[in-house]
Design a protein around this nucleic acid. Structure first.
Length: 496
RNA sequence: GGCCCCUUCGUCUAGCGGUCUAGGACGCCGGCCUCUCACGCCGGUAACACGGGUUCGAGUCCCGUAGGGGUCACCA
């Protein structure tokens, strides 16, 4: 590619960054990085009523969190209003657009009539298209409000070569004379977008298939404005299980990038998951480093069909797409432990469980804890929920663990204190000594080793499952182990 | 409804005429490991929407049908 690649991500700041938008940003970013190009962030804030500062902040934070960096911007569309107006005036002056004085009511009435007559064309009928200059001037002088419409060619084909869909074309005459400037003088998205892309020298437009019909009209606009038509690539959409477009309205926070940040996702894991929705590298790889992904990415391998975000509301086991969780869990257990520890630190801080010593004299212990737990956790959030007992004495014992591993065996009331005594007698508790002590005791008592061990797990970690208890006896500090084991008395006391 | 796009396991997907009794991943089920869980390893379940063509041969090409999606604003 000899020409410098320039792509853009143009969110409209009317909500948070959702995963569909993030995916679009990711594809553009990958394409730019792959070709040593430029990614421009352009905030399309022309819809003043719906645009908010908060949303702009949310989008930027979301992109930063994901690690999607841009090279230019953020630019704000509203700052280029003069360009948009100038373009509209140019089209008007060249006779490529015209003023339309039809009122909304008239338009609606004619539309309904066309619909009733079962006409195939229900768009604008072109009534003002051929108004004489005198007539138009007269109406304008009367103070009649007008919109500016683009004069669509009456013959020929409009088309373009889509990099994912192939050749797309339609007869130009089928496209109605669409509005490019509102009656209040404000240009519309269709025009602004094209003018901005021309100014920003955008070479490739990578966006969702929901823009496909816009594209034909925009191609016309590029041509009328004498600009080169960029390359288009329309990505498939992401739907829900019921095949509806995912949206905040119907799916809530689950579609927000922020939700994943708040639920212990590793940013790159989300990127990795999202990029696999509608794209594949052509081989069996599914896990990519940033460099590998940039290397593997290409527009041609984007799928044509929509994909489904496999999320079931209220699923007890999977709070989001199982594959997303699985990819996150993969990164959680394979990334350098220090990197995971840094993320866990943030979770602990947020929960008020962070001990500065974890960065100092307890650093090794902290890293080992993270390492020990991470292979059975799915998110960094799990460290402060299921893993809470590792960082605080204030934790609840899981109900099932209590029922199944403790209360079922009243003998534990004696056995666990015995175990505590014997561990206390050890000069240093190592996993090996702990195993010998625990197994020895079980044998003497004539019980299965699992009984005291699983009970100890419940008392010490609050969980029904977790790392090896032999490891844990040695891992927790001595006093904690002994104290928690001896709490067995309270348990039976409380529930008796 | 018009126009446009799409259609392989439950989900993400590989497949660009013969190598497809359709491969991988996630999920699910079973097994090994084992103090529990997880990891890991082994095994299993499960799909070419339908109908016509073209061809010696079709998941792959063509047409039709059905289904799904997108879009039809003085929103972006």
């Amino acid at each position: 590619m000899s020409e410098q690649v320039r792509v853009r991500f143009p969110p409209s700041p009317t909500g948070y960054l959702h995963i569909g938008g993030a995916r679009t940003a990711i594809f553009n970013w990958l394409f730019a990085r792959k070709h040593g190009g430029t990614l421009i962030l352009r905030i399309e804030d022309t819809d003043a009523e719906r645009s908010t500062e908060e949303s702009i902040r949310g989008i930027i934070e979301g992109l930063e969190w994901l690690g999607i960096d841009w090279d230019e911007g953020p630019y704000f569309q509203t700052e280029f209003a003069a360009d948009h107006i100038a373009a509209a005036e140019k089209l008007l002056a060249e006779g490529k657009a015209y003023k339309c004085f039809c009122s909304k009511e008239e338009l609606e009435a004619r539309r309904q009539a066309a619909l009733a007559a079962k006409k195939s064309q229900v768009g604008y009928d072109g009534k003002c298209r051929d108004l004489s200059p005198e007539e138009a001037a007269r109406l304008e002088a009367e103070g009649r409000p007008y919109v500016v419409r683009f004069k669509t060619p009456r013959d020929g084909e409009v088309g373009y070569e889509d990099r994912v869909l192939g050749k797309i074309s339609r007869p130009a005459a089928e496209i109605e004379d669409f509005v490019i400037v509102r009656s209040n003088g404000k240009p519309l998205y269709l025009l602004c977008n094209v003018v901005d892309d021309i100014r920003d020298r955008i070479t490739h437009i990578i966006r969702g298939q929901d823009h496909m019909t816009n594209t034909l009209r925009q191609v016309l606009l590029y041509q009328a404005l004498g600009a080169r038509v960029p390359v288009f690539a329309h990505m498939p959409l992401t739907l829900d299980l019921k095949k509806a477009k995912i949206s905040k309205r119907s799916h809530g926070e689950i579609v927000a990038v922020q939700f994943y940040r708040d639920h212990g996702f590793i940013p790159w894991a989300l990127v990795n998951f999202l990029v696999l929705l509608g794209w594949n590298p052509g081989d069996d790889r599914e896990i990519f480093s940033k460099e590998e992904l940039i290397q593997a990415f290409s527009l041609e391998r984007i799928n044509r069909s929509n994909s489904i975000f496999n999320y079931r509301k209220g699923d007890a086991k999977f709070f989001t797409d199982p594959k997303a969780i699985s990819i996150n869990a993969h990164y959680l257990r394979t990334m350098p432990v220090e990197e995971i520890a840094a993320l866990v630190k943030k979770e602990l801080e947020r929960e008020g469980l962070w001990d500065p010593a974890y960065d100092g004299e307890k650093k090794d212990w902290f890293l080992r804890t993270v390492d020990m737990l991470r292979e059975r956790f799915h998110t960094t959030r799990d460290f402060v929920t299921a893993g809470r007992a590792f960082f605080s004495d204030d934790f609840e014992i899981d109900e099932k663990a209590l029922k199944k591993n403790v209360l079922k065996h009243p003998g534990l009331k004696e056995w666990l204190p015995m175990l505590a005594d014997r561990l206390e007698a050890e000069a240093v508790i190592t996993p090996e000594r702990a195993e010998a002590v625990a197994k020895g005791l079980a044998e003497e008592l004539g019980i299965k080793p699992g009984i005291p061990l699983n009970a100890a797990r419940a008392l010490i970690t609050g969980q029904i499952k977790g790392p090896s208890m032999f490891e844990l006896f040695a891992h927790f500090d001595r006093a904690t182990v002994l104290e928690r084991l001896r709490r067995i008395g309270e348990i039976f006391g409380e529930t008796a």
